[in-house]
Nucleic acid binder design. Structure first.
Length: 792
RNA sequence: AGGGAUAUGGUGUAAUGGCAGCACAACAGAUUUUGGAUCUGUUUGUCUAGGUUCGAAUCCUAGUAUCCCUGCCA
């Protein structure tokens, strides 16, 4: 896992000793199958823990009795194990801890932090208010802890009907964060739970259960997707009220979608139910089970997950990133053999008896690049390249790919043409002498002559003995959808704009089952997502292990379908095609008009020609601007200050002398966010001496700013800090020269690059010298001296 | 509308005030008994406008765009 904002946090926490080791968890709801969208979240959770020598847990978030099933739980665990994860004994079911959650609920009630509400759901929604209006208390909000405890116990005991009461946290009905308006903690629900049975008739909500379970398991870093940022406030509230220490913290990451792929559980189900695919493990599906059956390896999936980075933005990843991961994994794993998917008979008229050729499994470059000099047999055994061979029968009657013979070849065609030559892979060069056609004009047979090795040919094609080749069915999969964004609202959007992935990468079952399903995506199905052909494969494969993945030369990577292939009726599925430069070239020639993706940001960029007008100021603010500019404050800063009461209040304490403009500048540019948050501890009056030091050139801008930042945190007077740390006074010329010389000596390569013309490096050197001198170097003199030194 | 989050080439991601880098894609060439692989090279980028600074992708202000929140789902 490449460094990202989460690993950064973890490293800091480990460094500071906040936690002895990192503990993470992947918490799927077992209400569906894991798919490619989920591997990202699981990879992030598991890999970061593994990377930092920590522990990772698999946790079934199965608190909703209506959705979770053991079958899904087992399937998810199975798929994740296949991916290579091993959580040891750390498999948890949230439902195993209902008793503990309940105990904490009683504690909250006892503390007065939770109450039993008895209004209807509709009423509760009404009372919650909306973004504009704060919520109003339910009439039951003021029940006493004793009353609430009694009610809660009776809820548990089953004295009330479903929905009659809920337990709510007593937080803040006026909060602009809707999640904090007294979230529901428990609901009454008589559903049979697949694990807990009928032991409970009240079930905890996510916002209560999830933080608790994190804490109970000793999780340190609890990662979830971006839509839970608002929920973090509840998380932190609970941890604080219940006094967990050390406690877990929640961090949110952006989701990752994949082009040409849908990941909504309901839509996937629709595909299955409509017969568009043959089941949840149809190799065209994005589920992990389907990708397993397709023949993708766990290593490839993990490589893919590692490649798409982590950030705090939802993104859609280019399909080619996945395809590339699959291909490059298979390139070094799959021995090469030959199969003809769409056979055209060829008679080698000058070949008398059958021959047996010994052909290598691997091309020269795989052999050459092998780290240990060995290569694999289909069994997996690694042997010397000379013995990594198989017998291939060459007979008078062959088949070649129908595509590889063309009576009317297009320009650039490098295969067989009437009278032309081509090399049969491993067998020699042939010339096509004549061919038969049927009534419809289709070529039915080519008659060819095997030439000597002195013949020349422009291309190489694959072939199989018609007499000894083994019949097989080939399933050629292609992407399920024709458009990059099948879940988009309109055809135009579907063609171009990547949209945010419509799934929850972590909570597998998260989906509103009550909303109508937009089935528009069905119109984007690719009618050619599965093509079935019958052909011949070379006989060597019948001796190989069933799980062998091959490259059928020039065709792609294949393996036996693990469900349908039988020894006497082989079925090979195509895992992925090879890259096909020829197909791309011909396609381009045929359809040159196909426009590239419209650039998405371009439209935004050109739009604001009007020049967005900054929000107008009130007359009072305008007056403030006039007053500030009169004191020497530049207009832009004056406007910033004028519109913010917190900044003005701070500035009110500033000395109105020659230092005022500088103090105002700091206020607007450096202190503003801190002032609004009420975190600035320094007084404006204390800034004047620092400004004076700066204008007298006793300190550099950089030192001044550094001091200011620290003073804002500590509250110490900046001038006192300058005094104490001896920051005033410039740098002697000797010291500056020495620093420059030292930096140049430390970075001779950069010096060379600079002298070779890379003048952008000047900033680099400036930065290095600044760092070396603690910011005390005067920028102007530094720059002239530095340039002189570099050019000299 | 109120609150929150985000914005770097075609795509994804680095750069934590100082060299805009990497991967995929694309294009060109070399090489090749796979129109594969490999190697070399090239093109393309900091949302907009102001400001602070010797220096801004990074800090400040405003704007724009996208997403999330107002379930007794997770």
């Amino acid at each position: 896992m490449a460094p990202n904002f989460i690993t950064e946090i973890i490293e800091r926490d480990l460094q500071s000793g906040k936690y002895p080791q990192v503990v993470t968890r992947f918490p799927p709801e077992p209400s569906g199958y894991a798919h490619l969208g989920h591997i990202f979240a699981s990879f992030l959770d598991f890999q970061t823990a593994a990377q930092y020598g920590g522990r990772y847990h698999l946790r079934m978030d199965d608190t909703n009795p209506e959705l979770a099933t053991q079958e899904y739980a087992d399937a998810i665990a199975d798929d994740l194990r296949w991916l290579g994860w091993d959580w040891g004994e750390h498999l948890y079911y949230a439902s195993d801890h209902f008793e503990q959650y309940y105990a904490y609920a009683e504690q909250l009630v006892g503390q007065g932090d939770a109450y039993v509400d008895s209004v209807t759901g509709d009423e509760m929604a009404r009372l919650r208010g909306d973004a504009r209006t704060p919520g109003t208390p339910s009439p039951y909000r003021s029940r006493t802890p004793e009353e609430n405890l009694d009610l809660l116990r009776r809820m548990r005991a089953g004295e009330f009907a479903d929905g009659a009461h809920v337990l709510r946290a007593k937080i803040d009905l006026g909060s602009p964060n809707m999640k904090l308006r007294d979230p529901v903690l428990y609901r009454i629900l008589r559903g049979h739970h697949y694990r807990a049975g009928d032991a409970w008739c009240i079930y905890p909500m996510y916002d209560f259960q999830h933080p608790l379970q994190d804490a109970l398991e000793g999780v340190t870093h609890s990662m979830c997707s971006l839509e839970f940022v608002d929920n973090r406030a509840i998380y932190d509230w609970l941890m604080e009220r219940l006094g967990f220490s050390p406690r877990p913290h929640q961090y949110e990451f952006g989701r990752r979608g994949l082009e040409y792929t849908i990941t909504s559980k309901r839509k996937l189900r629709k595909l299955v139910e409509a017969g568009a695919v043959h089941g949840w493990d149809d190799p065209r599906m994005p589920t992990l089970r389907a990708q397993r059956r397709l023949g993708v390896t766990p290593e490839a999936v993990r490589a893919f997950a590692a490649q798409i980075g982590v950030s705090r933005t939802n993104r859609t990843v280019d399909l080619s990133v996945y395809e590339n991961a699959v291909r490059s994994d298979l390139n070094h794993r799959a021995p090469r053999v030959m199969a003809v998917l769409d056979p055209l008979p060829v008679t080698l008229e000058n070949l008398d008896g059958p021959q047996t050729l010994s052909l290598p499994y691997w091309p020269f470059d795989v052999v050459r690049d092998s780290p240990d000099g060995l290569v694999a047999l289909p069994t997996g055994e690694r042997v010397a390249p000379e013995v990594a061979v198989r017998d291939v029968p060459l007979t008078r009657e062959l088949v070649i790919e129908r595509d590889d013979f063309n009576p009317e070849p297009p320009k650039g065609f490098k295969r067989l043409t009437p009278g032309g030559t081509v090399r049969l892979r491993g067998a020699g060069i042939i010339r096509a002498d004549r061919f038969d056609v049927d009534d419809s004009g289709q070529v039915t047979r080519v008659y060819a002559t095997l030439l000597g090795e002195d013949a020349r040919a422009g291309g190489v094609i694959h072939w199989v003995s018609a007499e000894q080749g083994v019949p097989a069915e080939f399933r050629l999969y292609d992407r399920l959808f024709r458009v990059p964004n099948p879940e988009a609202a309109t055809p135009e959007d579907a063609q171009a704009e990547p949209i945010a992935p419509d799934f929850d990468p972590e909570e597998i079952g998260h989906e509103d089952e009550t909303k109508p399903l937009d089935a528009g995506f069905m119109a984007f199905l690719n009618p050619d997502s599965l093509r079935v052909t019958r052909g011949l494969v070379e006989p060597s494969v019948t001796r190989d292990p069933a799980g062998t993945r091959y490259q059928f030369e020039r065709q792609g990577y294949f393996w036996r379908d693990p469900v349908d292939s039988r020894e006497d009726a082989l079925v090979f599925g195509r895992i992925i095609t090879l890259k096909d430069a020829w197909a791309k070239a011909t396609q381009k020639a045929e359809a040159p008009a196909k426009a590239p993706k419209p650039a998405k940001v371009q439209s935004q960029k050109t739009e604001p020609t009007e020049k967005a007008a900054p929000a107008a100021l009130t007359p009072e603010q305008e007056a403030e601007v006039t007053r500030l500019t009169a004191l020497g404050v530049p207009d832009a800063e004056a406007r910033t200050l004028a519109r913010d009461a917190a900044l003005l209040a701070f500035l009110g304490g500033a000395a109105q002398d020659g230092t005022f403009a500088q103090v105002a500048s700091w206020t607007a540019n450096d202190l503003a966010p801190g002032l609004r948050a009420g975190e600035v501890r320094v007084q404006a009056a204390d800034l004047a001496p620092l400004a004076a030091l700066l204008s007298d050139k006793k300190v550099t801008t950089r030192v001044a700013r550094d001091v200011l930042t620290r003073a804002a945190q500590t509250g110490e007077a900046p001038a006192a800090m300058v005094e104490r740390e001896n920051l005033a006074g410039g740098l002697s010329d000797e010291a500056l020269s020495a620093a420059i010389a030292q930096v140049m000596a430390d970075h001779t390569d950069k010096v060379d690059a600079y002298r070779a013309g890379k003048t952008a490096l000047l900033g680099f050197f400036t930065g290095q010298v600044m760092r070396a001198t603690g910011g005390k170097a005067d920028p102007a003199t530094l720059n002239t001296s530095l340039q002189a030194a570099l050019n000299g």
